[in-house]
Design a protein around this nucleic acid. Structure first.
Lengths: 328, 328
DNA sequence: ACTAAATTGATAAACGTTTGACAATTTATA
DNA sequence: TATAAATTGTCAAACGTTTATCAATTTAGT
């Protein structure tokens, strides 16, 4: 790999001048700039980012900690984050915590060792005290990680209300909530609250089934099937689309008529669900808005670590009505 | 952030000694080792990986170039790669090329500037001549990128044969192939070949519909619907599951009876499809095997850049039979 | 042509680590 | 207790870049 001195030699100038060209400071004539650019092109020169960063420049690396990109929602979110960060000149180190707190801890240490300029975390684990001590700029998605760590989330409460209400509107009275484990201080608890509040307002009794996020699909399937075999509600609000889809599948095996007998609504509204399961009603989280807001906040903190930010940023959701494919 | 000299000061030893402890060379007494470890723990010390790498050590960073993690197959593959690499002490820089050759070029430059120890690429773009010039260890998934760049793929030919045959076995004669754009030298062409060969052996005429990978879902939907409205085949082999799923959905809107009137088989067999679309028959690519093989090969090349490797590594696929949820 | 301004260069320190050479000290062995 | 071996320290160079300082040279303005 060519280095700075090689460029300087080829361009017939000093290393100082080359550095000045690269970092655009000091006074430079157009002619030398061109000479240097030409030399850089000829040598296919890329500044060694290790050396630059060691010297004090930003690494232009951002750590992304999420449960895992195999989940469609996180896959889309991470892809969006990466794309937007790339446009802004940042690269992404990917961390799949897979619900493993120990792994997450290791990731955080590693990211700091790698001198990332900032971290965006949306892990499903419990708030690790280590997060508090991180001095790197940090933005959280949908989780409370500690004081002064801004949380960006979709309007979980409102979304849950909309979902639950829409089930009521179609005539359902016996509505189940399928949700992940609800930990204190977690914004996703708001989905539970929204559901409960709407039911209370209509004097209906809630029926909550907790299925931790990390539950194996087979186990989830078995549990849900058992529940549905015992009793069929007329409405199901699943706090994520994949679970909603599973309920649809199970309902079919049990000969439960979807939409006549049982109405289902999900949450997330990824492109995947909307494009490939258009018959599923859902609440759409604004992925693009979430990721650009998170990036904005993070870059603000990177530019000035003392930037005052809100504790919570709540972005609006929108309902996505099922496209009945079965209709004629 | 604490640095080497801080650890040395706290432990009451020299920086050299601390470095010896960290890098485990020279002779060291158990006592000093413990003192140093304790100091590292107390200070929560993490060696600055920039400095280490600059000094000549590996960066322990691997670049992953894939079309995008929002696609379930790549999402699962990338997650698996990341997990396995993490276990082996490597971190991952994620690159979503999204079918953009220019972006891919930029990624490669960036990865080299970031001094990654190696690259695993599974991009959908055309073989970029730049790949040839990369001196970093490089392994490709399912694409020809250049000479001496090993390709790992599933047995596309065999998989396509199995898929096509299984449609024939269930009585189909009028079988369509839905595939992405077929570029010369691409292993996925083998899926086309497998399909064609089986049909030829049965004196049947192929009917190939090309839908480039990057086609927007809406466009895909419209195209497929148009085709199916014109004529309904009795079998469809889609070279990826998502397209297969879309065909199922469209068939429903057209009141085409799936499995009686029209049999569909996909390709990829991700966990997502198998868990959430168990009614879809598909050909399962061995994701775990693919990623561990790619990592093995890559680490071999990293350990010794001159390791002789095969040009092609083909891993077996297995058919996944549809679980008829509709059956009683 | 003279002065001021603009441009370029030479030099060196710094970022945090690794590592080699060699010396100094401690510990173990006979 | 002398001697060898093991341990630790000191010092300095190196990785590739940035940036400050000061000096030298070129260019522009009048």
């Amino acid at each position: 790999m060519a280095k700075l001195s090689d460029v300087a030699a080829l361009a017939g100038v000093s290393v100082t001048t080359v550095s000045r060209v690269i970092n655009n400071y000091g006074s430079l004539s157009e002619k030398t700039k061109q000479k240097v650019f030409a030399a850089m092109r000829d040598l296919n020169y890329q500044p060694n980012s290790l050396a630059r960063s060691l010297q004090g420049k930003q690494t232009k690396l951002i750590g992304l900690i999420f449960p895992g990109v195999s989940n469609p929602f996180f896959g889309e979110l991470v892809q969006d984050l990466e794309s937007q960060l790339f446009k802004r000149g940042y690269r992404v180190i990917l961390c799949n915590s897979i619900g493993d707190a120990e792994k997450e801890r290791a990731y955080v240490r590693m990211l700091l060792a790698n001198q990332v300029d900032g971290i965006i975390a949306g892990a499903h684990n419990l708030s690790i005290p280590e997060y508090q001590q991180i001095n790197a700029p940090l933005i959280s998605f949908d989780r409370y990680l500690g004081d002064n760590i801004p949380i960006v989330s979709s309007d979980n409460y409102d979304g849950a209300r909309i979902a639950t209400s829409s089930l009521l509107d179609t005539g359902a009275h016996d509505i189940w909530l399928l949700t992940g484990a609800n930990r204190p201080g977690n914004p996703t608890n708001d989905r539970l609250r929204g559901y409960q509040d709407v039911l209370k307002e209509h004097q209906l009794t809630p029926h909550v089934i907790e299925l931790p996020f990390s539950t194996a699909p087979e186990v989830k399937w078995a549990t849900l099937k058992r529940e549905l075999a015992k009793h069929v509600p007329d409405g199901v609000f699943a706090t994520d689309d994949m679970t909603a889809i599973m309920v649809m599948q199970i309902a079919r095996t049990l000969d439960i008529k979807i939409s006549e007998q049982l109405r289902i609504i999900g949450y997330d509204g990824t492109n995947l669900t909307r494009n490939y399961y258009p018959e599923l009603a859902t609440i759409v989280q604004p992925i693009a808005a979430i990721s650009s807001l998170m990036i904005d906040l993070l870059l603000q903190r990177i530019a000035d670590p003392d930037t005052a930010l809100e504790d919570r940023y709540v972005l609006p959701v929108r309902p996505y009505a099922a496209q009945s494919l079965l209709g004629k």
